[in-house]
């Protein structure tokens, strides 16, 4: 445990010195503020909480942005150290390969959490103070759900990033694979599903199957989790029409994202253990 802690501290310090955290937080805050301030203008005098608007726009932003950042943090972590020669050195110390991966995971998740909480927190607070809508009446629960699920989304793509990083021989390969994975999950997968739906629009496609096919993708689970988090967000995102039988419980959505965190992490450790140095 002590050793993992040592690894976590070093990795976080490195991230901090790299200006990663500062950059990340700054970009997150700016994007979040821009999106939410722009997004809140049209609500005007409607009865919808401005924070709910923020949640909807921020979750759309997160779906693209958080996986990208997580992959960028993780793709280089093992293969980069292997290229610099520090990996061989590290493994001659009394640390197991499992501890190396877990240490990196905890540190990176910590950095990501800081960036998300500060960035989105500033945006959320600004919105809730700016409008005439009462502070306590805001959709704080939805907002909290946004923060938590965003961290979880980050964890998913960190794990996937380590899996890439332990499996390839060169940094450049890792970067290419990471970008490919990102495109697949946030863009291509949904396009494929849409194509499937369009092709089967004459009724041959099982709606239930398509729904679960969609939710298998952790980014879609994340979207569903946030857009249906309250009646306001559902209304805003066009999810209100969703019949109750098509709703998926929060628990299932969280479980999907958790599995997407744990499975790649376990796979990354297993592959790492067999990696030739």
């Amino acid at each position: 445990m002590n050793r993992i802690w040592t690894l976590v501290i070093k990795e976080s310090r490195d991230g901090y010195r790299n200006r990663w955290v500062v950059m990340l937080t700054l970009v997150m805050t700016l994007l979040a503020l821009t999106l939410s301030l722009l997004g809140s203008t049209p609500t005007g005098t409607t009865s919808i909480s401005p924070l709910a608007v923020t949640v909807v726009s921020l979750s759309s932003l997160s779906i693209f942005f958080i996986p990208l950042i997580a992959l960028l943090l993780a793709y280089d972590s093992v293969v980069g150290e292997a290229e610099r020669g520090t990996l061989i050195l590290l493994l001659t110390y009394p640390v197991s390969r499992t501890e190396v991966i877990l240490g990196k995971f905890i540190a990176h998740l910590f950095l990501l959490t800081i960036a998300i909480v500060i960035g989105y927190g500033i945006a959320g607070l600004t919105i809730s103070f700016a409008g005439e809508y009462g502070f306590a009446d805001q959709e704080w629960e939805s907002f909290l759900r946004l923060l938590l699920s965003s961290v979880l989304l980050g964890a998913v793509f960190l794990s996937i990033g380590y899996m890439i990083s332990v499996a390839v021989k060169e940094r450049t390969t890792a970067a290419a694979v990471a970008i490919g994975i990102w495109l697949l999950f946030v863009l291509l997968y949904d396009m494929g599903l849409l194509a499937l739906l369009a092709a089967g629009s004459d009724g041959g496609i099982n709606g239930e199957l398509v729904k679960w096919l969609m939710l298998i993708n952790p980014t879609d689970s994340y979207r569903m989790f946030n857009l249906t988090s309250s009646s306001d967000t559902a209304l805003l995102s066009g999810m209100a029409g969703l019949s109750s039988e098509h709703r998926v419980s929060d628990m299932s959505l969280i479980l999907i994202m958790l599995s997407w965190t744990i499975a790649p992490l376990v796979a990354a450790i297993a592959i790492f253990k067999r990696r030739q140095l």
Partner: peptide, 14 residues
């Protein structure tokens, strides 16, 4: 055990 690898580039920013 103490080990000095043939080539090692420590993290520049530490």
């Amino acid at each position: 055990i103490g080990f000095l690898p043939e080539q090692v580039l420590f993290q520049n920013n530490l």
